[in-house]
Amino acid sequence: MVPHTLVIDTIRFGSPDWERLARGGVTTVFASPDSAAVIGPRGAILHTAGPWAGRIVSEASDVKATIGTDTYSQGGGNNSPYRNYVTNRTRRPNSRMGVAWVFRKAMYDTLRYREGHELEGTDVPDAPAMEVLSEVFAGQIPLRIQARQQLDIATALRVSEEFGLPFTLLEATEAYRCLDELKAANVPVIFGPIYTDPSGLRQRSSETRESRLGTITELLDAGIDTALSAQDLREEDGLIRQAMYAVRAGVEAETALRLVTEVPARMLGLGDRLGTVETGKQADLVVWSGEPLEATSKPLVVMIKGSVVVDERAEG
């Protein structure tokens, strides 16, 4: 339960990943915490290139919560205390029920905190965390919840309904199984990545086996507000390739492009600055060697705030 911490504190501006993102045509990134905490730190919104000072769009953006097995299976996994054998792995949660309980407890604590009650007991969250969650309750800080499997999505929906918390659903691998519920709850979805065989982090998670290529199409057809994300994937699975996969899954090219430009900009509350090529908006542009969603195209020139950050035009 660490919503008062900030991802921005851990960002390494020197990381080559930034350059790689920029070269892939990505100009703005929501730098998200990983999924190890039930209620995780607040992400940051950053540009991928340009002077470091100007890169930060938002230091403290959405709070990211996770409902699923990642919270207790990543790393060594959480254990219950065994006699005197207590390590840093000895902690909650270690089951899905536990995850939901930690989430709920945080919400109850916040409600009590907001009403001015003194929080008592041994497991009292930090006041700064309470402050942040209070603001989440007040709707001042957006909440995003990562849930992959159907039952986790259901939990997220249930909990949010209990506490009247609006949120954005993240990843949503099995969204195709609960389209109606998502539609009814009017939850925006940041879907992705699209894959059939999970790789990397997801390969180790048991939550991702049921991924389907067509989920994005179904989400869109169901009229659910959806953005597309590559999450932690890079290289060939990068953001523009995700849009390409969406097209393969039957999404119109123009719509697919929106899923990685206009829609996410709006979801991040930056719709007035980013996401479209319009007079008055920030000049974050990519010049492609061909149609952006074609497999043979690549970004030639990438511009952030009007200054060229990538220029791969061949000499001569």
């Binding site: 195709y176 059939t196 389907r212 290529l213 067509g214 199409t217 057809d221 039957g250």
Partner: peptide, 10 residues
Amino acid sequence: EKQLELEATR
């Protein structure tokens, strides 16, 4: 079709 359930249905 199963992978792309919806499209196939369509």
